[in-house]
Simulated scan of single mutants.
Amino acid sequence: MTDASRYPLLARPHVNLNGSVDHAMVADFRSQLAAAPAEGTLVVALSTLGGDPEAARLIGDEIRLIRDYTGREFLFLGKVAVYSAGATLMAHFPAEKRFLTRGTRIMVHERQLTTDIHLSGPLKSLPATLKAKLNEIEESIRIEEEGFRDLIAGSNISFDEVEKRAPANWYIEAEEARELGLVLDII
């Protein structure tokens, strides 16, 4: 175990995000960020069973823009569950800026899609409908792979390992996440 006093900022996160990752969480993030101190390191804490990966990417991109344009440091603190879209958000923080509380689990899996394809109309128009759905799937796979690469950057995990384990919902306990270099430490 780690002496939490080494990381005093983590005791009182500036932004606390809990629940489903969705557009309500994006709004909550923006509201809490606006109320946070204007200078210094900011801590973003997250506990989620998952949700919309694009909402997670939006929050992550807003953090990246602030970091890039102001030089502000952001720290990530995962609490209890950092599942699915939560891991997508965590991937927007460098591995050396990520922390987990004791007992926290990260869950990494492939993006999911449930869809029906309704074909109706002139035969010559139907291939475009099918190509559009195929393009959606292929682009989603590329986005997923980008996210996996961001998640494992700076860690001891290979991309092949993520691809092998993600289809079966890969649960990573806090200690293992630290050993793998996914997070800097556990508090």
Rank of each mutant, 00 (worst) to 15 (best):
residue 174 A to E: 06
residue 81 A to H: 13
residue 97 K to E: 02
residue 78 G to I: 02
residue 162 V to T: 01
residue 112 Q to K: 15
residue 142 R to S: 14
residue 126 L to G: 03
residue 172 I to L: 02
residue 83 Y to V: 00
residue 170 W to H: 07
residue 133 K to H: 14
residue 125 S to V: 07
residue 118 H to F: 09
residue 119 L to Y: 03
residue 61 D to W: 07
residue 185 D to M: 03
residue 16 N to M: 14
residue 147 G to F: 01
residue 172 I to P: 02
residue 111 R to T: 12
residue 123 L to V: 12
residue 12 R to V: 06
residue 155 S to R: 04
residue 139 E to V: 14
residue 60 G to Q: 02
residue 30 R to K: 14
residue 152 I to Y: 06
residue 8 P to W: 06
residue 10 L to Q: 03
residue 181 G to S: 08
residue 166 A to Y: 06
residue 6 R to G: 00
residue 121 G to I: 09
residue 53 P to T: 10
residue 150 D to K: 13
residue 12 R to P: 06
residue 153 A to C: 02
residue 21 V to E: 03
residue 145 E to I: 12
residue 140 S to V: 05
residue 50 G to K: 08
residue 58 L to R: 12
residue 71 G to V: 01
residue 157 I to F: 05
residue 64 R to T: 08
residue 19 G to L: 11
residue 132 A to C: 11
residue 29 F to S: 05
residue 169 N to M: 13
residue 4 A to W: 03
residue 52 D to S: 15
residue 108 V to W: 00
residue 82 V to R: 03
residue 173 E to D: 12
residue 29 F to M: 09
residue 5 S to F: 01
residue 14 H to R: 00
residue 45 A to D: 03
residue 114 T to Y: 13
residue 114 T to E: 15
residue 19 G to C: 11
residue 37 P to E: 09
residue 52 D to H: 13
residue 146 E to D: 15
residue 27 A to G: 11
